[in-house]
Amino acid sequence: MGKAAFRVSVEGSDKVITCLADETLLKAMARQGISNIPVGCRNGGCGVCKIRVTKGEYETGKMSIKHVTQVERDDGYALACKAFPKSDLTVTVKNEE
């Protein structure tokens, strides 16, 4: 039995990220040599890899409230470095810069 793998589409990019069940979206992206989401601290502090999930299920680890407010969290915003896909996803990059 292999680990569940989910496919993550990033709007505006034709590269699809394959993400293992226990893997963050950003780590999966980097592992596959893809760079359609900006990489910052990779640990939920800097906000560079901010995305909005427009389709699919996911869970998140701890993220700096400064970069993803509670209202935004309820609205699908997350940091890709702290997002664990639980189904296939469609996401949009929301880099604050």
């Binding site: 601290c41 640990n43 939920g44 502090g45 800097c46 700096s64």
Partner: peptide, 8 residues
């Protein structure tokens, strides 16, 4: 490098 909260 970064600490687990993203502080460099």
């Amino acid at each position: 490098f970064f600490d687990p909260s993203g502080n460099r």
